[in-house]
């Protein structure tokens, strides 16, 4: 089994984007997503795309890597676009062509509006994906991200929401993904050596063939969890109360800049929506 997922791999570099505080990135992404969905005028997508391209260039993540990450989602983008092409109705004047499949019941009509809608929705999805993957996975390690979420949500501790515990669970889960993948491969090889066959046979036979993998995997996951808990207790872990950090998150001047960008962007998008004269979604 091959787990070659381009989407969501950290890309090592020391660019400005990498050095941003994870909380800034969270804020940026949230406001940016709001802006994407607020944008209705076709011209509003120009500043949205420009800011994103600017961020990609600054992050020094090769454009090729980002495009490869998008490859996995081409289907979703195409699917949405195609649906929109055929399910949008427009005026008589904007009709491109009409084709009757079954007389009186099924006619396919294509309007210019449909094409515009499809294009803008595709742009929306692509901006959304590039923005989230760039800020959350290519330039931020999972640990930084959970740290950021924890500090950003820490006011919720006042109303007894166990923010620290959730963040810790998330960190541990992320940390153990590669370990479990490696473990799965090892167990699969061991069972293959005993003649296990995962590829042939019907559905039931295939499902049965997984038992010799899943059981040892669960056993070892529980064992690991147990060992980890003991190790954490040995090092004095007793929850988040009074816990200090080795790497304290600190806001810099550049963070202010990246706080302002999405706010200005959102304001700009709203203004274009009102005063712009492009095609409205």
């Amino acid at each position: 089994m091959n787990f070659d997922v381009g989407l969501g791999q950290y890309y090592e570099s020391d660019s400005v984007i990498h050095k941003l505080d994870p909380r800034t990135k969270l804020f940026f992404v949230i406001v940016y997503i709001v802006a994407i969905f607020v944008a209705r005028d076709a011209y509003a997508f120009i500043p949205l795309a420009c800011v994103l391209v600017f961020a990609v260039i600054l992050s020094r993540v090769p454009i090729f890597t980002i495009l490869r990450g998008l490859r996995a989602l081409v289907f979703i983008v195409l699917f949405t676009a195609v649906l929109n092409v055929f399910w949008t109705s427009g005026t008589e004047a904007s009709m491109i062509f009409q084709y009757t499949v079954i007389p009186d019941t099924w006619t396919i009509t294509l309007y210019w509006e449909g094409l515009y809608n499809a294009g803008l929705l595709a742009a929306r999805i692509i901006c959304l994906l590039v923005c989230t993957t760039l800020f959350f996975s290519y330039t931020t390690t999972p640990i930084e991200l959970t740290d950021g979420i924890e500090t950003a949500l820490s006011p919720l501790k006042k109303i007894k929401i166990p923010v620290h515990e959730f963040a810790m669970m998330m960190t541990i889960a992320l940390r153990f993904i590669p370990t479990l993948i490696e473990e799965t491969n090892k167990i699969m090889n061991a069972q293959k050596a005993r003649g296990a066959d995962f590829n042939n046979g019907g559905l039931i036979k295939k499902a049965k063939a997984l038992i010799p993998i899943i059981i040892p995997l669960f056993v070892s996951a529980f064992r690991r969890a147990d060992e980890l808990a003991t190790a954490m207790e040995c090092r004095g872990y007793r929850g988040g109360n009074g816990r200090t950090r080795m790497k304290k998150l600190k806001m810099h001047l550049r963070d202010l800049f990246w706080f302002l960008i999405p706010v200005l962007l959102l304001a700009g998008v709203i203004l274009i929506n009102i005063y712009g004269n492009g095609y409205k979604l």
């Binding site: 167990i187 090889n189 061991a190 293959k192 050596a193 010799p212 040892p216 070892s220």
Partner: peptide, 21 residues
Amino acid sequence: IGKVRFKVGMVMQYPEYQLFA
């Protein structure tokens, strides 16, 4: 290739973790 695995028996490192039955 499956047939080769019956001819060459392989005991991996720490084989006790492959027990399941």
